[in-house]
Design a protein around this nucleic acid. Structure first.
Lengths: 180, 180
DNA sequence: TTGACACTATATCAGTTCGATATATATCGA
DNA sequence: TCGATATATATCGAACTGATATAGTGTCAA
């Protein structure tokens, strides 16, 4: 799959028109946020390029009290390009975790740094879980959104459970060593 | 955390000396593989740079039947730099999934493409689970490795369970629609 | 036996993306 | 009224990926 920022923009705009800013916010907060990320530095050039290729249309929208918006909408050719891009076997998931890197090399850090890292990780995971719950309520729940929400919830719940147990174990060990 | 390829190389070499090629293979197959990736294009320059800074040493090793190796080893300054780099709060995990992108936009693909994607995903997940089991046996199981293995196993097992259920659901629905 | 392929090993580079920064305006709370 | 936050677009250096180049060795089937 040609899974780049171009395809991401087409996918987001397949559900309705939006500006570059709204796309960025949408993939930060909405259902996309669990498995994709993109910066302004890649979104804006992608939108310009896609428009030049006829896969999108632009419309300047004046706003009072806010800067003008460039509202993008997907074209019929854009929908075809999107369908083509996602009709192939997906590449393997990519997962990057500084947290697990830290845990693997725990001998280089102090127990309190380790505990702080675990607590931050738990916080991040719970925030993501809350965001999924929000999306479940706010967005209209079509089959695709339910699939992603269920999958994300399953993974995050398992992570939290595992981490909570690891945390208890660590606290127990640290207390035992302090008592010696 | 300055979690770049430089820190990754220091982390890998903290467990013993290795060549650039061995680092690449090691992070593909070993415990690092679950949460990190790096290409030759970033590893080789990083090793050269780290050596110039005195965080690593190099030693050319001649081999019969194979190209010569440049074997890198971490220095005391390197260990200090590693400890410094990982003694801060970790950045949030980054997860990228073309698969979930496809599932969210399932209305653009046919049921057979969707089923093929799910089967590939299940395959990928099971391969990762098998790799964790391998690492458990082969590598000496210090606390850090156990932590990462347990965490990865919990997450992957939850993913597989969720996906298997989703797959059954899809097969049921497709059969029901075909019967109409 | 020879051609295709895979493995070991290092290196480079175009293209993609990130993260930071710049610019401009408006709102809202301290 | 000062700083922070939000809306909105744009640019750019730095980092990284994925592909390709180079080169010798091993393997295996046609």
């Amino acid at each position: 799959m040609t899974m780049n920022v171009r395809t991401l923009c087409l996918g987001f705009l397949s559900t309705g028109e939006a500006s570059g800013y709204e796309i960025k916010k949408g993939i930060e907060d909405g259902m996309f946020s669990h498995f994709i990320d993109a910066s302004f530095g890649s979104i804006y050039p992608a939108l310009t390029q896609l428009t030049a290729e006829g896969l999108l249309t632009v419309r300047a929208e004046e706003q009072t009290g806010k800067p003008d918006k460039k509202v993008y909408a997907i074209t019929e050719n854009g929908r075809k390009a999107l369908a083509r891009a996602i009709s192939v076997l997906p590449a393997k998931d990519k997962f990057k975790s500084e947290f697990l890197f830290q845990m693997l090399l725990h001998q280089f850090i102090t127990p309190d740094v380790m505990l702080a890292a675990i607590d931050k990780q738990l916080n991040d995971l719970r925030h993501d879980l809350a965001r999924i719950a929000e999306c479940r309520c706010s967005e209209q729940p079509h089959a695709g959104a339910r699939f992603v929400a269920d999958y994300g919830e399953a993974v995050l719940t398992a992570s939290v459970r595992c981490l909570e147990e690891k945390r208890r174990e660590l606290v127990r060990q640290t207390a035992a060593q302090a008592a010696e």
